[in-house]
Amino acid sequence: GLPPGWRKIHDAAGTYYWHVPSGSTQWQRPTW
């Protein structure tokens, strides 16, 4: 699974990851 606080988001551009507490997003899968 993903580290705490991360969500996987799907949209028209593809899949990305959202860090809910900080509001940051990234294309790379977050690592622990």
Rank of each mutant, 00 (worst) to 15 (best):
G1T: 11
G1I: 11
G1A: 13
G1M: 12
G1R: 13
G1N: 12
G1W: 10
L2Q: 07
L2G: 00
L2S: 03
L2D: 14
L2A: 06
L2E: 15
P3S: 01
P3Q: 02
P3F: 04
P3G: 03
P3N: 00
P3Y: 02
P3D: 01
P4K: 05
P4F: 04
P4T: 03
P4H: 06
P4I: 03
P4W: 03
P4A: 05
P4S: 05
P4M: 03
P4R: 04
P4L: 04
P4G: 05
P4E: 07
P4D: 07
P4Y: 03
G5W: 06
G5N: 05
G5V: 01
G5L: 02
G5T: 01
G5D: 06
G5I: 00
G5Y: 05
G5M: 02
G5A: 01
G5F: 03
W6Q: 02
W6V: 00
W6Y: 01
W6G: 03
W6N: 01
W6H: 01
W6P: 00
W6D: 02
R7M: 13
R7D: 07
R7L: 13
R7Q: 10
R7F: 09
R7V: 15
R7T: 13
R7A: 09
R7K: 11
R7H: 12
K8S: 08
K8V: 15
K8A: 14
K8Y: 08
K8G: 05
K8R: 12
K8P: 07
K8M: 14
K8I: 15
K8N: 03
K8F: 09
I9F: 05
I9E: 04
I9M: 13
I9V: 13
I9P: 00
I9S: 03
I9R: 05
I9D: 02
I9K: 06
I9T: 03
H10F: 10
H10I: 14
H10M: 13
H10Y: 10
H10N: 12
H10P: 06
H10D: 13
H10Q: 12
D11P: 00
D11M: 09
D11W: 08
D11H: 09
D11K: 07
D11R: 07
D11S: 15
D11V: 11
D11N: 11
D11E: 06
D11I: 11
D11G: 14
D11L: 09
D11F: 09
A12S: 12
A12D: 12
A12F: 08
A12W: 08
A12V: 10
A12R: 10
A13H: 14
A13S: 13
A13E: 12
A13L: 14
A13Y: 13
A13G: 11
A13F: 14
A13D: 13
A13M: 13
A13V: 10
A13N: 15
G14I: 07
G14Q: 06
G14H: 06
G14N: 05
G14P: 03
G14Y: 08
G14V: 07
G14R: 06
G14L: 07
T15H: 08
T15Q: 07
T15E: 12
T15F: 08
T15P: 07
T15V: 12
T15D: 14
T15A: 11
Y16T: 02
Y16D: 04
Y16N: 04
Y16H: 06
Y16M: 07
Y16Q: 04
Y16I: 08
Y16P: 02
Y16V: 07
Y16R: 08
Y17H: 05
Y17G: 00
Y17N: 00
Y17A: 00
Y17K: 00
Y17I: 00
Y17M: 00
Y17D: 00
W18L: 15
W18A: 07
W18P: 05
W18H: 10
W18F: 14
W18V: 15
W18K: 12
H19A: 01
H19F: 05
H19M: 03
H19R: 00
H19S: 03
H19L: 04
H19Q: 00
H19Y: 06
H19G: 01
V20W: 13
V20T: 08
V20P: 05
V20A: 11
V20L: 09
V20G: 07
V20I: 11
P21K: 08
P21F: 07
P21R: 06
P21T: 09
P21Q: 09
P21I: 10
P21E: 11
P21W: 07
S22E: 01
S22H: 03
S22L: 03
S22T: 13
S22K: 02
S22A: 02
S22Y: 03
S22Q: 02
S22G: 02
S22W: 04
G23R: 02
G23H: 04
G23T: 01
G23E: 03
G23I: 01
G23Y: 03
G23S: 04
G23A: 03
G23D: 06
S24F: 14
S24A: 14
S24N: 14
S24L: 15
S24R: 15
T25K: 15
T25H: 11
T25S: 08
T25F: 14
T25G: 10
Q26W: 04
Q26D: 05
Q26T: 09
Q26L: 07
Q26N: 05
Q26A: 05
Q26G: 03
Q26F: 04
W27N: 12
W27H: 13
W27R: 15
W27A: 14
W27S: 14
W27Q: 14
W27T: 15
Q28F: 08
Q28P: 08
Q28A: 10
Q28D: 14
Q28E: 15
Q28H: 12
Q28W: 13
Q28K: 07
Q28T: 12
R29I: 14
R29E: 14
R29G: 06
R29A: 11
R29M: 11
R29F: 13
R29N: 13
R29W: 09
P30V: 00
P30A: 00
P30E: 03
P30R: 00
P30D: 02
P30Y: 01
P30K: 00
P30S: 02
P30M: 00
P30T: 01
P30G: 04
P30N: 01
T31P: 07
T31E: 13
T31M: 11
T31F: 07
T31S: 11
T31A: 10
T31Y: 09
T31R: 07
T31K: 09
T31N: 09
T31H: 09
T31D: 11
W32A: 10
W32S: 09
W32Q: 10
W32M: 10
W32F: 13
W32R: 08
W32V: 11
W32G: 09
W32I: 10
W32E: 09
